[in-house]
């Protein structure tokens, strides 16, 4: 690489923090100073006309510099080896450890920012159940109300709050942080989704127990929540994450999350029997419905376990699908 002739006068100094400022009057080399409007480095690597720097056709990527680049002044005065070995890549973060790290970080956020919202989610569901107490009869409708109110907590946090979180993260440039770390997209999305689903556990349990007491339903089947929360949580969190990541503006992500939650409220809590056909179809499309139905069935004196498993299977399938979509959405949003 040519360095002769074009090196700058003070190029050897490399202007370290401790380098004294050059005194223009004392520096004899300033006699041959370029006129004021001349670029400081006339043949700087950055200013040659574009045709000079056009990569040569068919040249190996590490081959010596092209015609324009050959004039690069090495201000540091060092020989440059462009064709050196590539620096080995640092290892990637593996899926599960990275997921664990994201999960832990997200869970810690809950302590700071999410607890008030958890109370809101829980009280909202408790309020709905108290309201419905006087409206529905015991039996199928009561079971639907309790199950719907419990799953509503999941919808509030996993769908609504996660959509808001990812919407704000994307709008605020926060995705750049994750995108410049060698972490699988799935770790970020699943870690956040899992953390948000976990936030819901206390609220769901409180709602389910309070509802069962309120409507005199058996408490024995509540163990099924251990399956309902993660599966409905996965489906709704995936949906929420995808919404947040794909929405062009954070307000739209918030709106989408709110609407999704309203849908979960109306279609999940209201007993299905009396709804118009179109609304019933919409109800069938909402993943939380299957969580609600699976949970409601376990209140029956003799639950149909096969149908419970089927409902949970639908939840799981939707969860896998929506989390896959969210992962794609994350990749898309992170590198635009």
């Amino acid at each position: 690489m040519t360095t002769a002739g074009s090196r700058s006068r003070t190029g050897d100094e490399a202007a370290r923090p401790d380098t004294p400022r050059p005194d223009p009057e004392a520096d004899p080399s300033t006699e041959d100073t370029a006129p004021l409007q001349e670029p400081a480095v006339p043949t700087c690597e950055h200013t040659p006309p574009r045709e000079h720097t056009r990569p040569r056709e068919g040249a190996a990527p590490h081959e010596g510099a092209g015609p324009g680049v050959a004039e690069v002044p090495e201000a540091i005065g060092a020989e440059v080896h462009d064709g050196g070995e590539a620096v080995p890549l640092a290892p990637r973060a593996r899926l599960w450890p990275a997921l664990g790290a994201v999960y832990r970080a997200q869970l810690s956020r809950a302590r700071v920012a999410r607890i008030p919202l958890l109370f809101v989610a829980t009280f909202q569901s408790l309020g709905i159940m108290v309201l419905m107490r006087g409206v529905v009869d015991d039996g199928a409708e009561a079971r639907a109300v309790v199950a719907g109110s419990s799953v509503l907590v999941v919808a509030f946090v996993a769908l609504n709050l996660l959509a808001q979180y990812f919407g704000q993260l994307r709008a605020g440039g926060g995705l750049d942080h994750y995108a410049t770390l060698p972490v699988p997209a799935a770790s970020v999305v699943l870690g956040a989704a899992a953390a948000y689903a976990s936030f819901t556990v206390p609220g769901v349990v409180v709602t389910a127990v309070a509802g069962s007491v309120l409507f005199q339903l058996p408490l024995g089947g509540l163990w099924v929540l251990a399956a309902v929360v993660p599966l409905a949580g996965a489906a709704l969190a995936g949906l929420g994450a995808a919404l947040g990541l794909l929405a062009p503006r954070p307000e739209l992500a918030t709106l989408g999350g709110q609407l999704g939650m309203s849908a979960a409220l109306l279609l999940g809590v209201l007993p299905a029997g009396g709804l118009p056909l179109v609304v019933q179809w919409a109800r069938d499309l909402l993943p939380s419905t299957y969580g609600v139905e699976a949970f409601a069935r376990t209140f029956e004196p003799h639950p149909d376990w096969a149908r419970v498993v089927t409902d949970l299977g639908v939840c799981a399938a939707v969860g896998v699908l929506s989390l896959a979509v969210a992962t794609r959405a994350y990749r898309w949003a992170a590198t635009r």
Partner: peptide
Amino acid sequence: VLDRVAVLDRGRVIACDTPGGLKAAVGDE
């Protein structure tokens, strides 16, 4: 703190050198 600096303006590099070199280029003004 910089060893070298590239000055950007409107998407182009208008100069690149050590800070001292750039300042010397402005002349003795």
